[in-house]
Simulated assay, not measured.
Amino acid sequence: MNASARSTIISLFLIISILFLFFKSCVIHNPKPDECEVVSAKVVSIREGSTFDIQFKTDTDNVYYINRGLEQGLNLDSLNAKVLNKTVTLHLPILTFGPSTHIAQLAVDNNIIFTEFEN
Rank of each mutant, 00 (worst) to 15 (best):
T8N: 13
I94E: 01
N85C: 09
I112N: 08
S7A: 14
K57N: 11
T115I: 06
N110D: 14
N2K: 04
C26I: 01
T96K: 09
F20H: 06
I15Q: 04
L106P: 11
I16Y: 09
E118P: 05
V88M: 11
V63W: 02
F20C: 06
A81F: 02
T96N: 12
T51W: 02
V44E: 15
I28N: 02
T60I: 01
Q72M: 06
H29T: 14
D109A: 14
F114Q: 04
S45P: 00
L95R: 07
N119K: 02
Y64S: 10
V38I: 15
Q105L: 01
S4T: 14
K32M: 08
Y64E: 04
P93N: 09
T60G: 13
Y65P: 01
S11V: 00
Y64A: 03
L95Y: 05
G98M: 03
I54T: 05
D61E: 14
Q105M: 13
S45E: 15
R68D: 03
Q55R: 14
H102G: 01
L106I: 06
F52D: 02
V38R: 09
V63C: 07
S11H: 06
F56Q: 01
D34W: 10
V63L: 08
P31F: 09
E118M: 07
V43T: 02
N2S: 10
I15V: 14
K86L: 10
A41H: 08
T51H: 09
V43I: 15
N67A: 04
P31W: 07
L12K: 11
L92N: 12
L90G: 08
P31D: 05
L106D: 08
L79V: 14
F20N: 10
E35W: 03
F52P: 01
I9H: 11
A81L: 09
C36G: 04
V108L: 10
N75G: 07
N80R: 14
H91N: 13
F20A: 08
D61Y: 02
S17D: 07
T89E: 12
V83K: 07
T51D: 15
V83F: 04
S4H: 14
N75I: 02
E48R: 15
G73V: 04
Y64L: 01
F22Q: 02
E71N: 07
L92V: 10
N67C: 09
S78T: 07
S17T: 15
I94V: 14
I54A: 08
F20Q: 05
D77F: 12
E116Y: 04
H91E: 05
E71K: 12
N75H: 13
I16H: 09
R68I: 04
M1N: 02
R6F: 07
R68T: 12
I113G: 06
G49W: 10
N119G: 06
T96A: 12
E48D: 10
T89N: 09
L12H: 09
F97R: 14
E37A: 03
G49H: 01
S17Q: 13
F114Y: 15
L90Q: 06
H102L: 05
I18P: 00
E48K: 15
G69V: 00
